[in-house]
Design a protein around this nucleic acid. Structure first.
Length: 425
RNA sequence: GUGCCUGUAGCUCAAUGGUUAGAGCGCCUCACUGUGGAUGAGGAGGUUGAGGGUUCGACCCCCUUCAGGCACCCCA
């Protein structure tokens, strides 16, 4: 065998069984998004690097984006995230698009990371946004979309939880601790680190960025204040609404959730798996200045993003991915010999027109071989049209799962297949 | 971008520095010229990730490189 050119580091090959899982996940995403009235959109995978220079974090562009110069010497990048593209698209048509807009998208993104489990260089990301309103109802709706999605994958509220916080609330709390404004981004980082460090390490880290002993103590109290949300009118209203959605099991307040990105201004949330490795599945929040940052007028919005890689791992560990996925063929029409090929093709077409997934064996191999092939493809029904059957205008239909085989009149082919395959999955 | 661990058949793994690198599963053929998951017999499949070095001799030791995993970083 000649040497096979290897695949690019951090990319994945989607063989049919893997592709079927992706298809299944994406179908739920599409279903939930559109049922909430969101419209699908997409942008280009290639963008000028300038689009990301404006915002979206230095690190993301400088160290994690695939940047290259085109033959025409433009500095291009493979999109590392969608939000700037969304902001541009909205800004370009600000006065034509009915607001608030509800848009969703799923597509490939690239980041130059060190690949490991749950992290690749090429991944798919679901983005969904509600732009043009500051209403708390919008925050609640977006979180409801996320919760509904998780629920419909089969994950229970014991397996996954969406933790919600509010940056305005945290800002106020930090004010009462007399934390200087310049220090806040660093403090948010400290909060973010809480679960990753030991208490001792965490205290040292907090002191290191310039907090006093007193402030560290206050911060510690703060991040454990499970009732803190009662001080935020927004969050009180938010949780009222989540209850109306009937999703309160999936959503809870958590003062430790803060999010790394700078552009969040209000509510922030992250979905975590509870058991196992407590990985972050999706994350988002309210951003009120994003469109303004790319040169449009101020437009408030709320949304989230979810990567496919971690999601799939979580779903796999939770055991909620259905066994039978994909559209493997249901019926194999065998081919007895050269002379009967037309009859087999005719029968296949008939079954196909009835809505079943049908394959015809490409050559007149021994029947045993053809059956074996059907087994490997997990095909349930085989149709046999040999000289004996054809002579009497009959057809043999075999249920490969139960080993039942019947020989019937040629005209009863479809009704017999329907008996063996009662439902069309 | 940094550090650590691991790369042997399609898969899971064996093989003190010493003949021709083995096993299970899987795959192909046959027993089975009109019937598949069992059984038996046979067969194919390897530049031991790649390249270099040490050695009389390397899957084994050393260096480089590639890939995967783990941690950091960051995040989806």
């Amino acid at each position: 065998m000649a040497e096979i050119v290897r695949s690019v580091k951090g990319t994945r090959d989607f063989y049919p069984d893997v592709m079927a899982v992706r298809r299944w996940m994406f179908d739920i995403i599409r279903d939930v998004s559109t049922r909430f009235g969101y419209q699908e959109f997409d942008g280009p995978c290639l963008e000028f690097i300038d689009l990301y220079a404006a915002k979206s974090g230095e690190e993301l562009v400088k160290e994690q984006a695939f940047v290259f110069s085109s033959p025409g010497d433009d500095m291009l990048t493979l999109r590392p995230e969608l939000t700037p593209t969304l902001a541009r698209m909205v800004a370009q048509r600000q006065y034509d698009i009915p607001l608030p807009l509800r848009w969703w998208s799923i597509g490939p993104f690239w980041r130059y990371e060190n690949p490991q489990r749950g992290r690749t260089r090429e991944f798919y990301q679901w983005n969904i946004d509600l732009v043009g309103t500051e209403a708390v109802a919008a925050d609640a709706e977006i979180v409801a979309v996320a919760a509904t999605f998780l629920k419909e994958t089969g994950l229970s509220s014991e397996q996954v939880q969406i933790y919600v916080n509010n940056r305005r609330l945290m800002d106020e709390a930090l004010s009462s601790l007399e934390v200087a404004k310049e220090l806040r981004p660093a403090v948010f980082k400290v909060i973010d680190k809480l679960d990753k460090l030991s208490e001792k390490e965490w205290r040292a880290y907090a002191l290191e960025i310039g907090l006093s002993e007193e402030q560290v103590g206050g911060l510690q109290t703060l991040v454990n204040a499970q009732d803190l949300w009662l001080k935020s009118d927004e969050l009180v209203e938010f949780f009222e609404l989540i209850k109306i959605f009937g999703l309160e099991d999936y959503v809870s307040f958590n003062p430790k959730v803060i999010r790394g990105l700078d552009y969040y201004t209000g509510i922030v949330f992250e979905a975590f798996e509870l058991g196992g490795e407590s990985r972050a599945i999706l994350g988002g929040g309210r951003y009120d200045n994003l469109v303004a940052d790319v040169g449009g007028n101020r437009l408030p919005g709320v949304g989230f993003a979810m990567g496919d890689v971690v999601l799939e791992l979580v779903l796999q560990d939770a055991g909620v991915i259905p066994e039978k996925l994909g559209h493997t063929p249901q019926v194999l029409v065998t081919v007895f010999d050269e002379a009967t090929i037309p009859e087999s093709l005719k029968a296949a077409e008939e079954i196909r027109n009835a809505g079943y997934r049908v394959v015809v064996h490409p050559e007149a191999d021994k029947l045993g071989k053809q059956f074996k092939y059907a087994d490997k493809l997990d095909i349930s029904v085989a149709v046999i049209l040999g000289p004996d059957e054809l002579k009497e205008n009959l057809v043999a239909v075999k249920n490969l799962k139960t080993r039942d085989q019947v020989t019937i009149g040629r005209g009863e082919l479809l009704s017999q297949i329907e008996k063996f395959l009662p439902s069309l999955p």
